[in-house]
Design a protein around this nucleic acid. Structure first.
Lengths: 167, 167
DNA sequence: CCCCAATCTTTGGTCGCCCAAGTAAAGTGG
DNA sequence: CCACTTTACTTGGGCGACCAAAGATTGGGG
């Protein structure tokens, strides 16, 4: 029972021409589009810093998690696949943003820390992300931003549970 | 051990352990995470159909845009880079989901249409997306869903304008 | 003590997505 | 009628993300 009752009142919620494609999942459709635009904007803002979107999150975790951090902890905090983190860190090391050292206490593990140049880009990344946030939320008042954040948080919890339980 | 010495006066209601990483852009951070989880869930739901996330949007546009469609129009509707659409369609053609024909009226152009097997998967894709939407929005009442959709629409407009203006 | 399971990381592959360049065809102006 | 621009698509390359499978260590139970 889909019961996607088409209440007459839906009218003009969409800013652009929302294709009928979105009928079966309007929020999912909007989310896909917003996510891609957001990523593209992030890429443009980070390009001058020599970072690719996704890498700034790695740097943020490094900056706030003490001098060094185990790669496995980074994986947990980012919620990414371990192989993704491995490859990203390899590129970031190549680019000179981070250093990677074998953990003397556990020879399986790898410790990660920001390089000197990596440590210096904190302010610029912060500024880029502030700009991104500001541009994304232009025209939304504080209550609406809070609303959006809360709703996204609930969706995140839903999807997190769904993805964890499926397999 | 980690010294979870959080200064008491942290922010307001956080759904999960929102890392201080999000300070400079809480909504952007939430958006990144939700988008990835959403994509992962979509991938799981589409896997049995032989589709990869992103391809279902192509199919939806093909289904609702008449018998054939020009690739350039598809590019415009999807808002993607032309090269992305080219490669995706090449894979989808290889997989037997779509057909591609040269446009007799314009020898530069390519016409795209769903194959027979592609046309038959409409219902299944629809069901997968309904499930995705339902799981994503579990626990949200109709007003909240409408709110979320509206807010995402405004963010999309913001980012769309920002991305278009940069260059 | 040793073997076997659990943990940490890497490799190889595929996809989506982008950018930068290039090819081919159509549409313009002199 | 021939440049010259615009449009349509493709190729090559790089990055983020996943999965599957393998290589190293560590840790526990018999």
């Amino acid at each position: 029972m889909n019961t996607t009752e088409e209440p007459a009142g839906t009218d003009t919620a969409g800013p652009a021409v929302r294709p009928a494609v979105a009928r079966g999942g309007p929020v999912s459709h909007a989310l896909c589009r917003v996510a891609r635009l957001h990523r593209t904007a992030a890429a443009a803002l980070l390009r001058d810093l020599g970072l690719y979107p996704g890498q700034e999150l790695v740097m943020m975790h490094l900056w706030e998690s003490g001098p060094v951090i185990r790669q496995s902890d980074l994986v947990r905090m980012l919620g990414l696949d371990p192989s993704t983190v491995t490859k990203t860190l390899q590129r970031m090391e190549q680019a000179g943003h981070v250093r990677r050292l074998p953990d003397p206490a556990d020879r399986r593990a790898v410790l990660v820390e920001p390089s000197d140049s990596g440590a210096r880009m904190l302010a610029e990344v912060d500024r880029a992300w502030s700009t991104l946030e500001q541009e994304s939320l232009a025209g939304l008042d504080e209550a609406e931003r809070e609303q959006l954040l809360t709703l996204l948080g609930r969706v995140e919890a839903n999807l997190s549970a769904y993805n964890a339980q499926g397999p």
